[in-house]
Amino acid sequence: MVFDFHRGRRLRRTSVIRDLVRETTLSSADLMMPYFVIETDDQDYKKPISSMPGQFQLSLKQLELKVGEAVANGLKSLMIFGLPAEKDPLGLQAYAEEGIVQQAVRRIKKLWPDLVVATDVCLCEYTSHGHCGLIKDGIILNDPTLELLAQTALSHAKAGADIVAPSDMMDGRVAAIRERLDESGFEELPIMSYAVKYASAYYGPFREAAESAPQFGDRKTYQMDPANAREGLREAAADVLEGADIIMVKPAGPYQDVIRMVRDSFDTPVAAYQVSGEYSMIKAAAINGWIDEKAVVLESLIGIKRSGADLIMTYFTEDVLKYMGNK
């Protein structure tokens, strides 16, 4: 008897067979959890972020409690975003020795030395105008900003960060940070560059969480046009040339084609950020009973990894660790 059709169902017949031939898998090592830590005297401070159900602004003490629970469930890495008590035009608290991120890094690394702690290197959470660079006459200044970003990265390194992650999208910032780290004795510290970062509408909830909305204009003069893909390869190539060790695409879900292009073009590890808007849409649909949250979360992350991401930063990390049962 001649069979003239493909019997793909043979390998889908049981869950064990499906597991055996699965092409893409997800593990705890693939996931990085973002946390928002706020400078406050109230160590019990834990403010829900209304547009991101299940996420919070945390005091240092509450951050410690959240991280401890996640580590017990298998957390391998995290990213810290800081909210200072005071902001100013120069973003002074971004690179202050006792800034909130610097305090958080020292605290976490003391408690969990093996936990990978990455830090967001940017000025927008610290500037009174909410932009990622210095401003003169309404213009975001590129080159003068590089010095402050390098200072910020160095302050994080001195506090004990394992990875610094510039997210500002100023031209040349990876080179400036690499030079400052190297001349200060941190040659071994990796840079994870937000290399391909779009001026996305999906960031809305984050701006509530980080209190970082720009006070005028927008960020389209430094973040990328969502219509452009090839431009992303130029940005990634520039950052790799300047010394980036990991390159990130942000957002993840709507830009899986870009993740694949970056993966196919570079040998460096590729990260992807499943951003606040992606998180909030899934959460909202689940709260309304329209989707199976666990199934959609896992499918979305598998899709991002399948497109080429080696590392996924996602607000679902704590939930997924519980799904996995410390695998």
Rank of each mutant, 00 (worst) to 15 (best):
M1W: 00
V2S: 14
H6P: 00
H6M: 11
R7M: 10
G8S: 14
L11F: 13
R12V: 01
R12D: 09
T14P: 10
I17N: 00
D19Y: 09
D19G: 08
V21W: 11
R22A: 13
L26T: 12
S27M: 09
D30P: 07
V37G: 01
D42Y: 02
D44T: 04
I49D: 03
K61A: 10
L63H: 10
V67C: 10
V67Q: 09
N73R: 15
G74Q: 09
K76C: 13
L78K: 08
I80R: 06
F81H: 06
P84V: 02
P89R: 01
L92R: 05
A94Y: 07
A96I: 02
E97M: 06
E98H: 12
G99K: 01
V101D: 02
Q102S: 13
R106E: 14
R107W: 00
R107C: 09
I108W: 03
K109W: 12
K109F: 11
K110S: 15
W112P: 00
L115K: 13
V116T: 15
A118T: 14
T119D: 02
V121Y: 04
C124N: 04
T127F: 00
S128G: 05
S128N: 11
H129M: 03
I135C: 03
I139M: 09
N142M: 07
D143N: 08
D143H: 09
A150Y: 07
I163Q: 01
V164R: 07
V164Y: 06
A165W: 06
D168Y: 00
V174M: 09
V174N: 07
I177N: 02
D182R: 14
S184A: 15
G185E: 08
G185R: 09
F186I: 08
S193R: 03
S193H: 06
S193T: 06
Y194G: 05
Y198T: 05
P205T: 10
E208Y: 03
A209I: 06
A210P: 02
A210E: 02
E211Y: 00
S212Q: 01
S212H: 01
T221W: 02
Y222I: 02
R230V: 11
E235M: 13
A236C: 13
L241M: 13
E242P: 07
G243C: 14
I247S: 10
I247V: 15
M248R: 08
K250I: 10
K250F: 06
P254I: 14
P254C: 07
S265I: 12
F266D: 14
F266A: 13
T268Y: 07
P269L: 12
E278P: 09
S280N: 06
M281C: 05
I282P: 04
A286R: 08
D292C: 11
V296M: 14
V296K: 04
L301I: 15
L301N: 11
G303D: 13
I304V: 15
K305V: 05
K305R: 15
G308C: 10
V320M: 08
K322E: 15
M324Y: 03
